[in-house]
Design a protein around this nucleic acid. Structure first.
Ligand SMILES: [Mn+2]
Ligand SMILES: [Mn+2]
Ligand SMILES: [Zn+2]
Ligand SMILES: [Zn+2]
Lengths: 129, 129
DNA sequence: ACATAAATGATAATGATTATCATTTATATC
DNA sequence: GATATAAATGATAATCATTATCATTTATGT
């Protein structure tokens, strides 16, 4: 009776890489990085495992509207900043907002997403040079 | 010297339709509706004009992560609710949040997006039947 | 009416993500 | 350790919303 998930070196490496970075990587970035250790790894393996981790609650998917899904191994409640210039996704150190009675009657929400758009520190400095 | 945008019945109809609804339509929804009045209209015309309106500041694009771009002729500051069940985008009647010193030093943001996820009133009722 | 270029409609191309499938591999059992 | 089973992989094709291309139509100033 085998009905469980199995271990694989690729799966382990993908999760380890996600946990080692604060860059909120895309599938393609993970693919490029992991090819150094697994030259034969397939892009489909990245996508499959990202979906697997998301279903297991080990990572969250972040959509900032740039056409790429970003992934984050930090599953705690936190918000993000997206730099319109360098297109980096950056963590914000900001307490989760509490919304009491803002939803219409009969609605319920256990989850919300807040993204700030603008220019990060580096990009603002470079624009002045 | 012609270097301006011109009038077209299609462009006028697209904007009028967007202004007449609170459904936050997708390009494909607009396409289906407008074919009633313009049987020969092309989907590219919808996309072209949506981009045009967005650049003119007449509409805003909303990305709730469902794989479709939604459009809204209400350009005032407001937030949205996305129903995970019926996948509708619904306006929230909620004052714009003011964020004082939440961004890291050197960062600036003139725009943020807040989306709540959950079940709308209709979908919650239907689940109990 | 004419000239010009913007707008359209048809169609192909793009590109991130997902699906398919033959092969490999992890793991429980003998 | 061998074996059986199904999960996981890698290669590849398919999907599908959106964008690009281009010949034709159309709006608008003269
Ligand atoms: Mn994060
Ligand atoms: Mn709205
Ligand atoms: Zn930046
Ligand atoms: Zn609903």
């Amino acid at each position: 009776m085998l009905n469980q998930s199995r271990h694989s070196r690729q799966r382990e490496a993908i999760l380890a890489l996600l946990r080692s970075t604060k860059l909120h990587p895309t599938a393609d970035w993970l693919f490029s990085e992991l090819k150094k250790e697994f030259p034969n790894i397939g892009l489909a393996t990245i996508y499959r495992n990202l979906k697997f981790f998301e279903e297991q609650g080990l990572v969250i998917k972040i959509d900032v509207g740039d056409g790429f899904d970003h992934y984050d191994a930090d599953t705690s409640d936190h918000y993000h900043f997206f730099c319109d210039s360098c297109r980096k996704v950056i963590d914000l150190d900001m307490p989760p907002l509490q919304f009491g009675e803002v939803l219409p009657d009969g609605f319920s929400s256990e989850h919300h997403q807040l993204v700030f758009f603008g220019k990060c520190k580096n990009c603002k400095l470079e624009l002045c040079s």
